[in-house]
Every structure is written in structure tokens, then in C-alpha cells.
Computed example of a mutant assay.
Amino acid sequence: MTTLTPSAFARTVRGEGPGLLLAHGAGGGIEANYGPIMEGLAARHTVVGIDYPGSGTTPAVQGRLEVDALVDQLISAADAEGLDNFAVSGYSLGGPVAIRLAVRYPERVSALVLSATFAYADTRTELAASIWQQLYEAGQHAVLAAYLNLMALGEPALNALTRAQVHTAAEQLAPVLPAGTSEQVDLVRRIDVRGDLGRITAPTLAIVTTADPLISPSLQRELAAAIPAAEIAEIPTGHLPFAEQPEHWLKLISNFLEQNAKN
């Protein structure tokens, strides 16, 4: 595996206040996944996030990504910004990344927020991710963009668009798919942090996207049930709460972090 130094990872730093680390989803990035709520998060926190290899301006790598390597880079970013303690928000693939971080560094994590996420890929999720990866590697990016609209948007949100709007959205997405898509989706297919769930000690909120075609609500609830004393909140969106209901998503995250802020 090709490795990158911490300085090679594109880093987002915004705001002031208690630390908040962000872990983004596969085929996304900090701006893509958290941009719509960044201003709200940064109003109360020092927000720090990194883009995985092949996302944002972080160079792509040859070979497999590993969850612990991503955790190491997040910790390096926190250290560089002088954050000894912090909350962690993980979205989609960022969920298991955040879980591993919370288990490896329990003394540093004040709270954990997991959105639209999973501990492992069940058969349905693995199938969806395998098609995603195969289409990307075959260069079928226009078809992949249409597939992602189908698999990411909740049914009400998708049906609210005209066929022409869906076509336009796919045309806009296809040329900007991250260069690291294949490696990131491959990690989705392999990752398994079920053994870590019972070891989480930080207060945890699992935000379940109840109309999610990609990561089923039942898989999200299975994760939450295995975390000691985890709270569950629901948001009626597909896999993209930041696109469908950003203000609702921000409120759920912010309220939980405020309730669990360390004095």
C-alpha cells in the first residue's frame, strides 16, 4: 500500500470552541458531506476534518485503505490543531472510522455521533457497494452517477425531481466523482467493527436515516443496539441528510453535543 504523510492529507479547520472531528463517507469528502452544515457546526466548535486519499485535494493512493490508517490521520490532524479532547462525528463510512477512533482513544473522545452508518456491510450493502465499485473501475461514470442518485436519495426526495432534473444531476456528478472512489468503496465492503461496539465508552448518538436505500435503517439500528446506552434519533431522509434535510441533521448533532459537552 502506498502511504501518505499527514501533511499530504487535505485538512479542513473551521470555528472556535470545543473540538469536533469529522469523518466523511465513501466517495465523498468533508465539503461534500459536511459543507451544508459546516457553518452551524463551526459556530460552536473547532471543527477539524481530513479528506481521505483520492477525495478533495488529498492525493490518491495505490492499494487498500485501512480503517486504522484513517484513524491515525485524524488523530494527527487533531494533534496538529492542539485538540486534546474532542467529539467525533462519523457519516456513512466515517461511522466505523469514528468508532475505531473512539475505542482506540477513549480518554480523548467526549461524544460520538454516527449518521447513516453501519458496523459491517451485510449482503445487501455489499452488493450495492460492489456494483458501485465495478461501475467506477469500468469507467461507466455516467451510469454510476445515475445509480448513486437511485441509491442515495430517499424515495420522496427522488420522486420530487423530474426525470430531466435527475438526468442533469447525474451529468453534473459523473465528472467530479473522487479519484479515490474505488479504494474507499472497497473499504466499505471489507470493514467490520462489530467487535468494537461494546467497548465504546463515550456518549453516543446514532442518527438513523429512515428512508435510506443504501444503508438500510435495520442495519443502522443493529449498530446502535450493540453500543452501550446509545441514543437513537431518526431523520426521514435517504442516505444524504445534508442534501435532503441539512437543518434537521445539524440540530440533531448540535443538541446532542451541547447536552454532552464537558465542563
Rank of each mutant, 00 (worst) to 15 (best):
E234K: 09
A202H: 08
I191K: 05
R189N: 15
V208T: 05
P228G: 11
I200A: 12
E222N: 11
G195N: 04
D196C: 14
P203Y: 00
A225F: 07
I191W: 02
D212L: 07
L197C: 03
R194C: 13
R194D: 14
E234S: 13
T201N: 05
E234C: 06
L214H: 02
T204I: 01
A226G: 01
V188E: 12
L205H: 06
T201L: 10
V208P: 04
R189D: 13
G195D: 10
A224I: 03
R190G: 02
R190D: 05
R194W: 15
T204V: 00
G198C: 09
T204G: 03
P228T: 08
R221L: 10
L223E: 07
D192Y: 12
I215E: 09
I191S: 04
P213D: 03
L187I: 08
A230D: 06
L197Y: 00
L223V: 09
V188S: 12
A202W: 10
I191Q: 10
S216L: 10
G195F: 11
A233L: 14
D196H: 15
L219H: 00
P203W: 03
A229R: 08
I191F: 01
A233F: 12
L214S: 12
A229C: 00
Q220W: 03
A225C: 02
P213S: 04
T201S: 13
A224E: 07
P203I: 02
P228Y: 09
L197G: 05
L187M: 13
R189G: 08
I191R: 01
P217R: 08
L214N: 11
L187Y: 05
I227D: 02
S218H: 12
S218P: 01
D212E: 10
L219Q: 07
A206P: 06
T209W: 00
E222T: 06
A230Q: 01
D212H: 10
G198P: 12
A211K: 14
A211G: 14
I200S: 08
R194N: 15
A230H: 03
D196W: 14
T209S: 15
P213R: 04
R190I: 06
A206Y: 07
R194G: 14
I200D: 05
A230G: 02
A226T: 01
T204M: 08
I191G: 01
T209V: 10
R194M: 15
A202M: 09
R189A: 13
L197F: 01
V188F: 12
I232N: 08
L223W: 08
L214D: 05
E231I: 00
P203H: 02
A230C: 09
S216I: 00
G195V: 00
T204P: 09
R221I: 04
L205Y: 09
P203S: 07
V208M: 13
V208W: 07
E234G: 11
I191Y: 00
I207K: 10
I207R: 11
I215V: 11
R194T: 15
A202S: 14
R190N: 03
I232M: 14
A225T: 05
D192S: 12
T201M: 12
G195I: 07
L205S: 04
L223R: 09
I227W: 07
D196L: 15
P217M: 00
I207A: 05
P213G: 01
A225I: 07
I200Y: 01
P217C: 04
L205N: 02
A206S: 15
R190P: 02
E234L: 10
L214W: 12
L219G: 08
T209Q: 13
G195S: 08
P217Q: 10
T209Y: 11
I191T: 14
S218E: 14
R189P: 13
L219C: 00
